[in-house]
Amino acid sequence: MLRYILISIFYITTSNLLFAQDYTGDRTEQTTERMMQNEEEGTPREPKEKKIYPHKRRGTAINMDISRFLMPAIDPGTLGAEIGVRTNFKKRMFIVGELGYENVSFDNNLADINDPNKGFEDKPYSYNSSGFYARVGFDYDIFIVDEPGNNDNILFGLSYGYAFQNHESPSVIIRDDYWGHYETSFSKYGVSTHWLEFTFGLRTQIVNNFYMSWFIRVRGKVYTDNEELLVPYRVPGYGKGSNAVNLGFSYKLEYLIPWGNKDKGHL
């Protein structure tokens, strides 16, 4: 329940902050005036004006996903961190790369195992995992605004993700109240996971060269090796290991190192 409340507050707060601004301003009024004029004069509607992508501040940004620090509250026993880089590739396209690590550790609780009327207080197995992940892809900016100095972006993107983790389950209990419980274990071994990730997000400049952004991420697993022995509880950077598709989010703070902005009047 706490998790849903935290996520709700997080999204509602960030989305309202970002969407509260009206970037269309004068353009809407001009369009309305033009339409009224056309109706009065009986002239045919003008062909739709092609919008030109404005000059926005370019450069290479380094960022940190601060939503990773909420992980212990959302999924106890999980710790992680992520840094990334974003650089202009073309006028409205960015190459993005992210690197992170994630640790998961929890114990099973066998306090009530011998009482058939009670279940486990926690998961019926212990689990440890540590690993890293990397994502590489691109983002495409669809935000066209006629406002000098506006460097905000609405981004769609596609990334390829790879994770490697070592994981183990020192104690697996299979409950059987008739013949008796069965205990086994899985030794530590490595698992690799590959996935594709579609992203949608908003990026806005807070102050000069500092940005914040949030992204919704839809991840589809492509391939996992060695999972027939022990399905990863969490795959670093991907989420639930047993899911073919995961939904995630990130909230980033960025610092931009500008380049390529000469003679274009960038602010």
């Binding site: 998790r3 849903y4 996520i7 989305s15 989420g239 995961n246 939904l247």
Partner: peptide, 12 residues
């Protein structure tokens, strides 16, 4: 988007 995300997170 927020509603979809909350539904999605709830389902997972």
């Amino acid at each position: 988007i927020v509603v979809l995300v909350l539904l999605g997170v709830g389902c997972t």
